[in-house]
Amino acid sequence: MFDQTSFAIEAHHLAKTFSTQAGIIRLFNDLSLTIRQGESVAIIGQSGAGKSTLLSLLAGLDTPSSGSVKLSGIDLNQLNDTARAAWRAAHLSFIFQSFHLLPELTALENVRLPLDIRGDKQAEQLAARLLEQVGLASRQTHYPAQLSGGEQQRVAIARAFVTQPAILFADEPTGNLDADTGENIITQLFELNAQQTTTLVLITHDSALAARCDRQFRLEQGILNEGLLS
């Protein structure tokens, strides 16, 4: 299924415009970016700069007004809805700012859910192992409401890695956490990332966090510049 390419993500001449009553808003124009497999990349920028829109284009959740995105050599926009959803399920994972755990499932059940969806028979062991890796072995049977914010995000991280994704998109993963907890979470995130050689795309507005990635990009006024400083 994969093309013989060393690039996890190739985005060429991406443009995204929105039409509103006031006229057409051009969020960015002619934006290109390539990310190697196993690389970690941070995209930083001010609120409203279009970071989340860029992430959604890169993850194939949204279609660009022009330009193309290839993930592991595949142009998702050429696939139909079902095939695209199936490809995403097999190769991508997400970590969200607000954790998004299902309240009626235990920590273990939340982690194994993506494996269950694809019918993996090893779901239970794999999920338990991931929970152990994020230090929540003793909290397996707890429900989200019984966990702290940091613990909930660790469950979310375990859930994101349990499928051994090729690419992981993390959208402000520490945005809802205090500094210390955030630091712990990030350490665990990078550890798992290193172990699984996952390609990591991290959206943040925190320069210190961005600095821990292999490369950094700053999105400003529709232009993507490499490097932390504008």
């Binding site: 809805d81 079902t82 959803a85 199936a86 995403r88 399920a89 097999a90 997400f94 998004h100 299902l102 859910l113 993506p114 969806i117 694809r118 859930r159 499928t163």
Partner: peptide, 16 residues
């Protein structure tokens, strides 16, 4: 909507 979006992000197809 949120729940649906999450389940879809975890790989649930429209049919499922």
């Amino acid at each position: 909507h949120r729940r649906t979006a999450l389940l879809m992000s975890l790989g649930l197809s429209r049919k499922q």
